[in-house]
């Protein structure tokens, strides 16, 4: 049984190839970011840097904007994860009750699912955020998406799997639902909560569009929005409306080694939490997607 046959070697080779293909864009970007500008632009770089140098990374350090945006993203993640996770935890518990115990449960549930399927579009949402005075604050990046219906459902499904007897005995002891949530559910659901916290973190770290719409000044711009702005390609029409100096500046900014270096550095937080993510997400995902 344990002896490997030819077909096993073929499978091994194919899987290694697939794994490698998943890394190609990242390896290529690392190589480009460590190469000489001209060599990179001329297409001499594959997986190994040409004329190795770290000037692109030095430029990032010198240019304050990248790390400023990095800081904004960190703040956003911290606020977004704590608020988002807290809301999901608090909401998932009552929702895991049956309508017999919690009569309004299904009304809430329908409302939540409805918001997941339907939205009013960009402009009305913008007007709400604007009228609340959130434009150009970190809250405009955190609050509109604070409630993740999807995460709440994942957590709710996990809660449903917790034996009711645990709760019942506590209820008899006179505990209220809040105490039960804190004493019984949260400790049991730690792994699931960690999973959705990590998912929320990745979401807030990667999201760029809200920053584009709600943020007005550079010092409030999150990292992904900043990077997205760098890779804008110029159309002929745009060029026609720009002054020559603007075009030159614009093209100088869109620089392949520099941009690759920025992409690599901005991946670091995701890479750091990735091992934790991997440990948790398999169970979390399977639970949320197919309930037995």
């Amino acid at each position: 049984m344990n002896k490997l046959r030819l077909s096993d070697y073929i499978i091994l080779a194919v899987l290694l190839l697939i794994g490698f293909i998943c890394l190609v864009p990242i390896l290529n970007a690392i190589a480009i970011s460590l190469s000489d500008k001209t060599a990179a632009a001329m297409g001499e770089v594959v997986f190994l840097p040409k004329k190795f140098n770290t000037s692109a990374y030095e430029e990032i350090v010198k240019e304050g904007r990248f790390f400023h945006a990095f800081g904004v993203s960190i703040r956003r993640v911290l606020l977004g994860v704590s608020i988002g996770t807290a809301l999901s935890v608090v909401m998932a518990y009552p929702l895991s009750k049956s309508p017999r115990v919690f009569r309004q449960r299904n009304a809430y549930m329908w409302l939540m699912v409805f918001t997941m399927l339907f939205n009013g579009g960009l402009i009305p949402t913008y007007l709400v955020v604007k009228n609340l005075g959130l434009i150009n604050t970190i809250w405009s990046l955190v609050l509109p998406g604070a409630v993740s219906v999807y995460n709440t459902i994942i957590l709710m499904n996990f809660n449903k799997g917790i034996p009711p007897s645990l709760e019942e005995s506590a209820l008899i002891d006179g505990a209220n639902p809040l105490q039960i949530l804190v004493r019984i559910y949260i400790p049991l659901a730690k792994a699931s909560i960690a999973t959705i916290a990590l998912f929320t973190m990745v979401y807030h770290w990667n999201e760029f569009f809200m920053g584009k719409i709600y943020i007005n000044t550079l010092d409030q711009q999150p990292l992904q929005t900043y990077i997205q702005g760098l890779s804008v390609t110029l159309t002929t029409q745009q060029m026609a409306s720009m002054t020559p100096e603007e075009i030159i500046r614009k093209l100088a900014v869109s620089n392949v080694t520099f941009n690759s270096a920025k992409a690599i550095v901005s991946m670091i937080p995701v890479i750091i939490v990735y091992p934790f993510l991997q440990r948790f997400f398999v169970t979390g995902l399977v639970m949320g997607a197919v309930k037995e």
């Binding site: 864009p25 990242i26 290529n28 970007a29 480009i32 990745v202 770290w205 990667n206 999201e207 760029f208 992904q224 990077i227 997205q228 760098l230 890779s231 392949v256 941009n259 690759s260 920025k262 992409a263 901005s266 991946m267 995701v270 990735y274 993510l277």
Partner: peptide, 13 residues
């Protein structure tokens, strides 16, 4: 877990 913003740069390369 990587954003399209970052992957956009990489695939453009």
């Amino acid at each position: 877990f990587l954003s399209w913003v970052i992957l956009g740069i990489m695939f453009t390369n």
